[in-house]
Structure formats: C-alpha cells, structure tokens
C-alpha cells in the first residue's frame, strides 16, 4: 500500500564508507589472533585480600563485568521504583515500561505453569533471566574482550608497538605481549554460571520442601511401594536414586550450557574478527544476540519449570495434587 520510493539514501553510503575504512584499517593494523583462556584474567597483580582457607582474592575482568551488570540492574530497579512509588495504574514510561511488559509476559508464563506458586517462583525466574540476559548481551558491546592491559607472557605473544599489539610473531621462548581485557563477559566465567546453577537447584529443593513438606524427599527415597509390589517397587526406588543423581547433573548442565554457549560465542566472535576483519563479524553479532536471549530464556524457564514440578510432587501421590 504505502509504497516507498527506493533510492540510494545517505545511510547506505555511510555503511559503505565504514566498510572501506575498516578495510584500510585492517591493512594498516592487521588483527592478531587472540589468546584464549578459560579462567578469568586477573587485573591486579597483588591479591586484594586473602581469605583464610579459601585463598587469595584478585580483581578479575569478569568481576568488572559483573559490577557493570549490577549497575545496569540497579538503575532499572531504581527507575521502576521511582515511577511506581507514586502509585496508580498508569503505564510506565521508557525502560520501565518495556520491563513491565517483559515481566507481565514472564509472569503469565509462570502462572500458567506453576499456578498458585507463581508468586514464589517468579522472582527467581525473572532475576536469573535479567542477569543472564544483560551479561550475555554485554559481549555485543565493542571493546569488551578487546581493550585492556598489555601483559608480558613467555609464549604465544605478539610484539608491542606503543599501546597496540601488531601482528609480528616473536620467536618461541622469547617474551611477547598479550592483551588482558578490562572487561570480559561474566557468562564466560564458570564461577558465575555455577553460582546461578547452584542457586537454581538449591532453591528448587527449598521450594519443593515448602510446598510438600517432608513428602518432597520421597521423590528421592521412594520406599512406599518397595514391599507391596517388589519388582515395580524396586524400579521406583531406582528411579528415586536416579532423580537424586539428576539433581546434581542439573547443576552441571545449567552451568556448562550457559558457559559453553557464551564462551563459544565470544571465541567465535574474536576468531572470526581475526580471520576476516571486515564486516563478517557484524552478522555473527546478530546470531550472538539471538543466542544470548535464548540462553537467558532457557536458563530462566528451566529453573521455573523445575520449581513448578517440585511444587507438584510425584505423579503417584494424590495428596500432592490437592
């Protein structure tokens, strides 16, 4: 209907200009293959403090990212609080309005799955989802994972020229330099994902006990049918033990799913950036944005579903459905 005339606008020339500029920049300063490291890099040479029995505590670049995530979340929470403290039913404006719509959708989803326990479960769902979403999307910001200190290493280093690294292999065994980024996405730190997974699984047990009392443990230690029906009772007992194992495997699965997806994503981003420095990374960024939101949704929704299942109890128990 509304037929817009197709013409060569200003913006596409701008895009073309940037691609060409990127091309020349890559010629002048060829991108280096980054150094991949699983644990978070330390930004401070001396430990901030030493905890007895736990060890030395350094400031790492994922902790910086975590503080940024916290700041964003606090700003959102504060914006919502400032707007809702006035009361009334009106629509919220700006970011708070978007968050309100998001919360409404998530809450309806929770309510349809968990029923009357939705009010208990929803804060976990929403908090996990928001934290994971923001930290995942942080990898899309330029400069994250790529701006940082130059550090001397013994192997796989590059020559340094002023504040930049240039692509010039140093001889093996000689001293080279690598970049220690100031900010590294917090989802690529296993501590973060394990912490979230532990909270999710532990709070699932807590909610299960609150919903069913001691009957919740019959899910893991099921002797109710062991003597009345020996064969099936034994199978039920075995299933209960398997449930116990699966709770632990849930922690691993939660932690490594998020870590694996985001770590693989960021590695792919900078490896692609090093191989083809112009334009290709932009398309992968779109994919990574999608992966980030999907992983956040999956983490939150799995937590929510497990919690809802924990409140509903075992299929065979009738009183649990009451």
């Amino acid at each position: 209907m509304n037929e817009r005339k197709w013409r060569w606008g200003f913006n596409r020339w701008l895009v073309l200009l940037f691609i060409v500029l990127g091309f020349f920049a890559a010629k002048k300063y060829p991108p280096i293959s980054p150094h991949v490291q699983l644990p978070a890099e330390r930004l401070s040479h001396d430990p901030l403090f030493t905890l007895p029995g736990i060890g030395e505590f350094y400031l790492t670049n994922t902790l910086v990212a975590l503080f940024l995530v916290d700041l964003i979340l606090l700003a959102m929470a504060f914006a919502i609080r400032r707007q809702t403290s006035k009361g009334g039913l009106g629509m919220l404006k700006g970011v708070s309005g978007a968050l309100e719509a998001l919360f409404e959708g998530l809450y309806n989803m929770t309510e349809s799955t968990a029923g009357k326990w939705a009010k208990e479960i929803f804060p976990y769902f929403a908090t996990i989802m928001l934290i994971v979403l923001i930290s995942n999307w942080m990898e899309l910001i330029p400069g994250v994972d790529s701006i940082g200190f130059l550090e001397k290493v013994a192997e796989h280093g590059y020559a340094a020229q002023g504040p930049f690294l240039i692509k010039e292999e140093v001889a093996h065994g000689a001293e080279g330099f690598v970049v220690i980024p100031w900010v590294r996405v917090v989802s690529t730190d296993l501590n973060f994902t394990f912490a979230l997974a532990l909270i999710s699984v532990v709070m699932t047990q807590v909610i299960g006990i609150r919903a069913q009392g001691m009957a919740y443990f019959t899910k893991f230690w099921n002797t109710s049918t062991l003597f009345s029906k020996p064969i099936f009772g034994a199978i039920d007992f075995g299933v209960g033990l398997l449930e116990l194992i699966s709770e632990f495997s849930k922690i691993l699965s939660f932690a490594f799913r998020l870590f694996g997806n985001i770590f693989a994503g960021s590695v792919m981003l900078f490896v692609l950036g090093a191989l083809v420095p112009v334009f290709v990374q932009s398309m992968v960024l779109l994919l990574e944005a999608f992966v980030g939101i999907i992983q956040a949704l999956v983490f939150g929704m799995l937590t929510m579903t497990f919690m809802a299942q924990a409140t509903q109890g075992h299929g065979g128990h009738d009183e649990a459905h009451a």
Binding site: L51, I54, G55, D189, F194
Partner: peptide, 9 residues
C-alpha cells in the same frame, strides 16, 4: 584449570 574458585563462587 576451569577457573572455578570458591571465593569467586
């Protein structure tokens, strides 16, 4: 090696 540390956790 995985970088898991009780303090950070």
């Amino acid at each position: 090696g995985l970088g898991i540390n009780l303090g950070y956790l």
